[in-house]
Nucleic acid binder design. Sequence first.
RNA 1: GGCGGUGUAGCUCAGCGGUAGAGCAGGGGAAUCAUAAUCCCUUGGUCGGCGGUUCAAAUCCGUCCACCGCUACCA
Length: 511
Amino acid sequence: MKPAYYITTPIFYVNGAPHIGHAYTMIAADVMARFKRLDGYDVFFLTGTDEHGQKVEKAAQDAGQDPQAFTDQISATFLDLARAMGLSNTQFIRTTEERHKRASQALWQRLQADGHIYLGGYEGWYAIRDEAFYDEGELTVSPSGQKLAPTGAPVEFVTEPSYFFRMSAFQERLIAYIEANPDFIAPQARRNEVLGFLRNKLTDLSISRTGFRWGVPVPGDDAHVMYVWLDALTNYLTALGYPDETAPDWRFWPADLHLVGKDILRFHAVYWPTLLMAAGLPLPKRVYAHGWWTIEGEKMSKSLGNVIDPRELVSAFGLDALRFFLLREVPFGNDGDYGRAAIVRRLNIELANDLGNLAQRTLSFVAKNAGGVMPGRGAATTADTALWAHVANLPGIVAAALDRQAFNDALAAIWVAVRAGNGYIDQQAPWSLRKTAPERMEAVLALLIDVLRVVATLLQPFMPDSMSRMLDQLGIAADARDLASLAMSVPSGTALPQPSGIFPRFVEDAA
RNA sequence: GGCGGUGUAGCUCAGCGGUAGAGCAGGGGAAUCAUAAUCCCUUGGUCGGCGGUUCAAAUCCGUCCACCGCUACCA
């Protein structure tokens, strides 16, 4: 049986339209999922929407809609985004699904049965808009006398009964776990932040609310609904069949990788692991917090009106160019800037000129001067060996980079090989060899095709559609495109299809 | 305030104890198979400032400056 690999995106909160940040997490997760499949894993890839909470209830009310209808509609836009980004997800989960209520309640009961939940009271200054409590000291007063949160949201003093999770009891175990597992939280800087946070005394977590109804009811106490985060985090278990630990997909637990935005790291690196410890379940192997995107140097915001729908970028530049750009432009974990000039530069230079043109010049030469079939290979020259050196270890390098979610390192390594390919063809000049040494010409072309095969195979997770076409042109059978198949080679004489350009240059006027 | 991080060529960044690197941008040349694409050569940096350790420091230590992140329930 193939080894299991479980990767998740966060479930996206349904109180706004999908933007480039959502697309980014989705695409990164998709690349991981596709790469692991190529590498022989049985992959479970989960994404979906987070649909409970007071904010959603209120937004639905404002829209004059029933919360479920409201949520159905917004969730559908995220599902549409997932399709538009080409996601190969196994499931799209929604927290309003019946199975999810069951899972959340089962987790609650498990915690309760083991004495990790108690009823207490919560009081303080609460801002509905932020769904957050604030300390008195953080508040400011508006001219009208209304107390305001630091975010500017109005607050009111509320007191309500609440169930608490004994999170404080797990503080030492969590610290020990993080220290014993250096790769559990990434990147390093985020891990430091979490450890820094844990140097302070952890308090218990308020895990129920009584002020609104739109949530999973607390078992045995209908006055309460679960705190949205408790419900949300449980989605990672729900999809695998929890609480049925004999369900076929349960073997995917624990997750290999939770991909999250840096703003929700604490929920995944503190709350979630302690909840799992309390429930007696194994912890995820890794939580990676990635950065945010700015747009042309500006923070993305509704008021600036610079929020970009990723689907518009797809229609302008193509899905694969967008996927490539997002993972190539900036180290994962850093913040990045989306700029029109930047994506055009990447598209034209690296995709069209470097890679697309290398494939095109090689394959069209084969079509015109080598009978349109896989050319004959020859004994390796020093130049051949030098070129192949850039490719021989590439699968291992890429796999290792992706295990660290270093997408840009993986792509950089692949591009070293691509550039070497262009240097090689210039230096070997098959157009000169054509008359003087036809056999050598064939050997040169064959080697280039072999190089392109490795490159295209490794790039499939990043640009599935384009690379599928490239592999078609290279004569690679559909069932010979995984990493293991790289050991095989296309026999000389195999007919190759007529080549055509994979990455057209982007010309501003023609758009 | 506390904790952490960053500061290296015009731009984005790699290097993290042994004579300063990559890509892009700039300059010059070659080639003409190819998507006017490619290849080669090249200009350019007192590696934030100051002090220290060392035979030797972007690389270790101290200090200062600038910017950024985290600092308890916010998807």
